[in-house]
Measured scan of single mutants.
Amino acid sequence: MGFKLLSKLLVYLTASIMAIASPLAFSVDSSGEYPTVSEIPVGEVRLYQIADGVWSHIATQSFDGAVYPSNGLIVRDGDELLLIDTAWGAKNTAALLAEIEKQIGLPVTRAVSTHFHDDRVGGVDVLRAAGVATYASPSTRRLAEVEGNEIPTHSLEGLSSSGDAVRFGPVELFYPGAAHSTDNLIVYVPSASVLYGGCAIYELSRTSAGNVADADLAEWPTSIERIQQHYPEAQFVIPGHGLPGGLDLLKHTTNVVKAHTNRSVVE
Rank of each mutant, 00 (worst) to 15 (best):
E157Y: 03
E33S: 11
M18N: 02
F174K: 03
L13R: 12
L106E: 13
C199W: 00
M18T: 03
P170S: 12
G158W: 08
T134L: 11
A15R: 11
D52I: 03
G158P: 04
A209L: 10
A59W: 02
N255Y: 15
A234P: 15
D183H: 02
V54I: 14
I151Y: 02
T253P: 02
H241I: 01
D52P: 07
T60N: 03
E150G: 10
L6W: 06
C199E: 00
Y175I: 03
S31Y: 02
L81V: 08
I227R: 01
G245L: 05
A192R: 11
A136S: 13
L6N: 03
R141E: 06
S160L: 08
V37A: 08
A192Q: 03
S193N: 05
R120V: 06
S137M: 07
A234H: 15
V189K: 02
L24F: 14
E233T: 10
D214A: 10
P23F: 10
L24W: 10
V28H: 15
G105W: 14
G53L: 09
I17E: 03
L73E: 02
N184L: 00
Y202K: 08
L204G: 05
N262Q: 03
A66P: 10
L5N: 04
G53V: 11
L247V: 07
V171I: 05
P244F: 11
T153C: 14
I50T: 10
Y68E: 06
T254L: 10
R110G: 09
P170L: 09
L204S: 13
P41Y: 04
S155W: 06
S161N: 03
V189T: 06
S162V: 04
L97Q: 02
D77C: 11
D118T: 12
L156K: 03
P232M: 10
S56F: 14
F236M: 03
A215N: 13
E101H: 15
L243D: 13
G246V: 08
V126H: 06
I224G: 09
G131P: 02
E225L: 13
S193D: 13
V112F: 12
V67F: 06
G240S: 11
A215D: 08
N149S: 12
L47M: 11
V189Y: 05
H115D: 01
H241Q: 01
V108N: 05
G72R: 00
A94V: 06
S162N: 12
